[in-house]
Simulated assay, not measured.
Amino acid sequence: MIFKNKLDRILNIKKEQENITQNIELEKNDLLALLISGFIILIPALLFVIVIFSSLFLIFLH
């Protein structure tokens, strides 16, 4: 193949990335921290969307 070296490099990069993602170990309270940070991000965003839609509802349909 003409591009065999490039293909081999791409396959090696993919294998290395898979190995890196498989070797990540979480500590004891990491899952709890991830959930708390997710809620900290999502709750204000959801409140913002609710306020925008409710204000539009009150303005246009009242």
Rank of each mutant, 00 (worst) to 15 (best):
M1Y: 04
F3L: 07
F3N: 13
N5T: 03
N5C: 02
K6H: 10
L7G: 01
D8W: 05
D8C: 01
R9F: 01
I10G: 00
L11P: 00
N12M: 08
N12C: 01
I13C: 01
K14M: 14
K15E: 14
K15W: 01
K15T: 11
K15P: 03
E16H: 02
Q17N: 11
Q17A: 09
N19W: 08
N19F: 05
I20M: 11
T21L: 15
Q22G: 08
Q22S: 15
N23V: 05
N23R: 08
I24D: 03
I24S: 04
E25H: 12
E25T: 12
L26E: 07
E27P: 01
E27L: 05
K28Q: 13
K28Y: 11
K28S: 13
N29H: 12
N29V: 06
N29D: 15
D30I: 00
L31M: 01
L31A: 00
A33Y: 08
L34C: 05
L34A: 10
L35E: 13
I36P: 01
I36K: 13
I36G: 06
I36V: 14
S37T: 04
S37P: 00
G38I: 01
G38M: 04
F39Y: 15
F39S: 14
I40K: 15
I40G: 01
L42Y: 08
L42A: 15
L42D: 07
I43Q: 08
I43D: 06
I43H: 06
I43T: 14
I43M: 12
P44L: 13
P44W: 11
L46C: 14
L46D: 04
L47T: 12
L47A: 13
F48G: 03
F48I: 11
I50C: 09
V51Y: 13
F53M: 10
S54F: 09
S54M: 06
S54Q: 06
S54R: 02
S55G: 12
S55W: 13
L56K: 08
F57S: 02
F57V: 00
L58I: 15
I59T: 04
F60R: 02
F60V: 02
F60D: 01
